[in-house]
């Protein structure tokens, strides 16, 4: 008797069916993941003349960033990461039409297997594909400009660690930024500050992306049609209304000078504050995915709301 929640054979059959039926969407996404960075990596150095002998001579390596394109590529990667996370608005796109709903719900795979398939594709495989295709586009940049810019020594493959850390790895921090201008004590304090700032930036990029995935997937389970637009509008409206109500509430009851900090709760260490925010965000992400799953289980072939 097969397990009714998860069976490896049944799951792999459903995964194969899903990938094949969604192949055109997947190919388009992969195409975007490759073409956009490729155009950027090939176009920007040409437009800005980054690898011309004059500019290349003036390039100074700071914080192990050995290529002038890295910073720009990192910005593009960050933007593409956010966009890829928002692709989760397509998580339940098959639920947008009644005929497709019939097809999905009559397929003898468990709800968990159907959900897990979409999860693996959108939450795991798409970001991995984005990362690998970005590295591939960068490699093409190095091959093209390496071959055409002789004598230029600042053309290097982008470091995967640099990308994955969203530039927040302290290995890429410019340690000589304040060399000679401040005291060792102040330098240590500044280093600590930048470590914390880097941790905050990394958390926001990574967990912010995961949170966006979960929210857009939840939006897709509620509004399968035009899910991205509806979810984005809802999030912006909800955010604005919450901020306005919060500000109005605080200023009404506590006045405009009200100020609250984590220190007020006994949390003085900044890294501890970052870790606590990360844990809270992860809990919200898990909760959102769980709500999305139970919403999917409740779906019928008619749309009640």
């Amino acid at each position: 008797m097969k397990n009714q929640i998860f069976d490896a054979g049944r799951f792999s059959a459903y995964f194969k069916k899903y990938i094949f039926e969604k192949r055109s969407t997947i190919i388009i996404c992969l195409g975007v993941f490759l073409l956009l960075p490729l155009l950027f990596c090939l176009g920007l150095p040409y437009m800005k003349g980054l690898y011309s002998p004059e500019q290349a001579q003036n390039f100074i390596v700071r914080g192990n960033v050995t290529d002038p394109m890295w910073h720009s590529e990192l910005t593009l990667f960050g933007c593409m990461w956010i966009i890829a996370c928002c692709f989760c608005c397509d998580f339940y796109s098959e639920l947008s039409k009644k005929r497709e709903r019939i097809s999905i719900f009559t397929c003898p795979a468990s709800n968990f297997e159907k959900y897990a398939t979409s999860f693996i594709v959108f939450v795991i495989l798409f970001p991995i594909a984005l990362f690998l295709l970005f590295l591939f586009a960068d490699a093409i940049r190095v091959w093209v400009y390496g071959a055409s810019s002789e004598g230029v020594s600042c053309i290097h493959y982008i470091s995967p660690r640099y990308l994955l850390s969203f530039g927040c790895d302290m290995k890429y921090f410019d340690m000589d930024l304040y060399a000679g201008s401040v005291s060792p004590t102040d330098k240590a304090a500044m280093l600590n500050f930048y470590k914390t700032a880097a941790a905050v930036k990394f958390s926001m990029c990574l967990f912010g992306g995961f949170l966006l995935q979960a929210l857009f997937a939840l939006g897709s389970s509620v509004w399968p049609k035009k899910s991205g637009l509806k979810t984005a509008c809802f999030l912006m409206t909800f955010g604005m209304v919450t901020a306005i109500l919060f500000y109005w509430g605080i200023s009404t009851f506590y006045g405009h000078d009200f100020h609250i900090e984590p220190r007020d709760f006994g949390i003085s260490n900044e890294m501890t504050q970052v870790i606590i925010w990360d844990i809270v965000t992860v809990c919200i992400i898990i909760f959102t995915w769980a709500v999305s799953y139970f919403r999917f289980k409740e779906w019928e072939i008619i749309k009640r709301w």
């Binding site: 008797m1 009714q4 019939i102 719900f105 009559t106 003898p108 468990s110």
Partner: peptide
């Protein structure tokens, strides 16, 4: 919609 029941019912709408 358990697989054991769904695999025993086929509907042609």
């Amino acid at each position: 919609r358990r697989p054991e029941t769904v695999s025993e019912i086929f509907i042609v709408p």
